[in-house]
Design a binder for these strands. Structure first.
Lengths: 226, 226
DNA sequence: TCGGCATTTTGATCCTGATCAAGGACCGGT
DNA sequence: ACCGGTCCTTGATCAGGATCAAAATGCCGA
């Protein structure tokens, strides 16, 4: 007997692989979905807030983060259009979330029936989103625990370029050096220096605006990132 | 309609919280389960191996890790009796796993039906295990990205003491300093120095064998760990 | 076009943790 | 008890990245 569980994204766990592109089935048609627009740098929810909803990005970029009591911040992930974030296993949000750029969100009210019943595609997306978060977090532990500043920047640029898919080899960084630093476990100065160094070495090129990166030698970057 | 999905651990996502203690329902009675004993430091599976099974620990301790091409190692997690590890969303293992101490395992063959059908309790455990891995990985990113050596040791000892529950305030470390270092993003010398420093400050006490830690001032440790 | 502001870069110095190198302590076997 | 090996600690020095400080650049609105 094939139950909803098997059709809801866990089956791939046991044989098939997860499709690279998720179905764009998270529409506003369901009665539990509303829209929300958030200005750049505005908060979507705070760490510790009751988790009433989860979110899918229609446009924009979001960061999730944790704070230490003295203000040190760790950005857990950046989310891009199509990504789902804000899923929690417990009662409340263990990370805060805010908009990196102006962002349009689809807000899914968290209800017991949301994952069952009518929308199997949504359930599949939700489970896939959690598994993807887990894989990214595990990969990121390797970066934070064992990679040098240069290697972290190389890994980050490559990963972002794979997700953002601008014209080949070009990435428009939506986030500030500060956000990159807090994601990569560095200071803003170290990020700047590592980026400059990669540019001097010819692995990347930075147009004067400094928020765009052209990957000039992806092979060398990949070798650095391992 | 309540489907298997709702009863299989995702329902807590949307209201209830995950029980602290998982049901001990992963027995050897099912025909897909076998036993395996692994000697200390022996490999259970390698990074990149096809993921044919997942595992539940009957006794012992396991570490999962990734390697960089030059040998740098990041230990993603330690797993204790009752824990499930080796779950993958893709085709193969993204971390390697080996035994820290001699370990007895229940090996669950990975089959499409394993999560459905008869054993709803197993499905619940599997999903809970994945969510727990995600939470631990996210918490660990904060440690690796933003905490000092002393703070890392304090966080690690507290987390371990909560999971191992020896006589109050006492933790028997099953792993070497080397393993601790590769989990905490430090060198073995830094681990040793941080531990010694915490001891001199009176926050912990180390009997001569050095593999047991008595938490003398849990409040101060917690303050360090944040 | 100019001025003000935020962001990024660059420079100088410091410091935490890494590296290199010995010592000690514990454990198992004989 | 002794020996050999492994694990852990300690010491000295080094270096990568942090911190402190300031200059350059880009952006946006007047």
């Amino acid at each position: 007997m094939q139950t909803a569980l098997a059709t809801a994204g866990l089956a791939p766990l046991f044989g098939r692989s997860v499709p690279a592109v998720l179905p764009a089935s998270l529409t506003s048609e369901s009665r539990t979905v509303t829209r929300r627009t958030v200005a750049a740098n505005d908060e979507i929810y705070a760490e510790g807030d009751r988790a009433m909803s989860f979110y899918k990005i229609a446009a924009g970029v979001v960061r999730t983060y944790k704070l230490l009591s003295d203000g040190r911040r760790q950005i857990g992930a950046f989310y891009l259009p199509g990504d789902i974030f804000g899923l929690e296993s417990g009662e409340d949000h263990r990370f805060g979330a805010d908009a990196v750029t102006e962002t349009r969100l689809l807000v899914h009210r968290r209800e017991p029936r949301a994952l069952t019943g009518d929308d199997g595609a949504l359930a599949r997306e939700v489970v896939a989103a959690m598994m993807r978060d887990l894989e990214r977090a595990q990969e990121h532990m390797m970066l934070l625990g064992r990679k040098s500043a240069r290697e972290r920047i190389a890994s980050f640029l490559l990963a972002l370029s794979e997700r953002m898919a601008d014209s080949v080899g070009t990435v428009c960084l939506p986030m500030s050096r500060n956000d990159m630093a807090d994601h990569l476990g560095l200071t803003i100065e170290s990020v700047s220096r590592a980026v400059t160094q990669l540019e001097r070495e010819g692995l990347i090129e930075l147009p004067p605006n400094r928020r765009t990166v052209i990957l000039r030698n992806a092979a060398a970057l990949r070798h650095l990132a391992d």
